[in-house]
């Protein structure tokens, strides 16, 4: 393909100093995210997936490597220069409780991105906020409420509305449903899926849950010890894992189906 990918990451390294010395959570990660695609980044805790997300969002400067949005390099930019690219890439956080300012009303929270980038006249901003609330399934007359009046799932809807109102090309979702109950998790995943075709946004979906990703993502990148060890279509990775780490993970995932044998890691004979 000769088309420039929406997001191109090449040989990205992140390292930083902690009390006990240098740590190196991301060790040479490369991938492309195409327009309209959902790419899932899957790994266990400490594999570097969250640091990678922070680097992409400009919250943590990478120590080496390149990040390009439609061919524009953003890896070395300072925060002021980065601001120009902000509307193109937004994010949804894991914790629905700490990711919204508790003292702002919902309509303010959703409108703020437009205020910051001074898009549209005030009247148009209001209209778009209402439209966005409708799209994510929040009753329009709840705009005057504060975040603490909402459940976890509803707060995550507010977070999604806030991230998508700038009409970004890329939405980075960092474990957006792992703090939610199963039934609510399904609501949010379905919502994200519907919004994707509606708004033409591409997802980089960071998760520890391969079963969830398998239903939702087009492509999966398995991350292990700071590197991507395997990529492929989601179904392919699930059915035919290539890397030892992927196999070990799949062997340990309990599928809620009693008619199949227990996954190998659950069998007592394995001892």
């Amino acid at each position: 393909m000769s088309m420039t990918p929406l997001l191109r990451v090449r040989d990205l390294h992140c390292s930083f100093r902690v009390n006990s010395g240098m740590i190196h959570p991301v060790r040479g990660v490369s991938f492309d995210l195409q327009r309209g695609e959902t790419l899932a980044l899957v790994g266990e805790s400490g594999c570097g997936k969250t640091t990678l997300a922070r680097a992409l969002l400009g919250l943590q400067p990478p120590s080496a490597g390149s990040i390009q949005i439609e061919g524009n390099e953003i890896a070395g930019l300072n925060r002021v220069d980065l601001r120009r690219f902000r509307p193109q890439m937004q994010c949804v956080f894991q914790d629905p409780f700490s990711s919204l300012n508790p003292r702002k009303r919902v309509e303010t929270l959703i409108r703020e991105p437009l205020d910051v980038h001074q898009k549209f006249a005030p009247e148009e901003r209001r209209r778009r906020v209402h439209l966005m609330m409708e799209k994510v399934g929040l009753p329009a007359d709840w705009g005057r409420r504060f975040p603490h009046e909402f459940s976890g799932g509803q707060r995550q809807r507010i977070g999604i509305a806030r991230a998508l109102i700038l009409q970004p090309d890329i939405l980075i979702c960092d474990e957006p449903v792992s703090a939610l109950d199963v039934s609510v998790q399904a609501q949010i995943i379905n919502l994200l899926y519907d919004l994707k075709s509606d708004l033409g946004v591409s997802y980089l979906f960071i998760s520890h849950d391969l079963t969830l990703v398998e239903t939702f993502a087009d492509r999966v990148a398995m991350m292990f010890e700071g590197q991507i060890v395997e990529t492929g279509p989601a179904r392919e990775v699930w059915c035919n894992p290539q890397h030892a780490f992927t196999r070990r993970m799949i062997d340990a995932i309990p599928v809620p189906d009693v008619t199949r044998p227990a996954p190998p890691a659950f069998r007592l004979e394995a001892d």
Binding site: L57, R86, S98
Partner: peptide, 22 residues
Amino acid sequence: QRAYVQGCIVLGMSDLRIMFVQ
């Protein structure tokens, strides 16, 4: 360190605005 402040940085909010408004 709260996620909402990180979110404001990702939105491209200025430091002064984050400090005194958020």
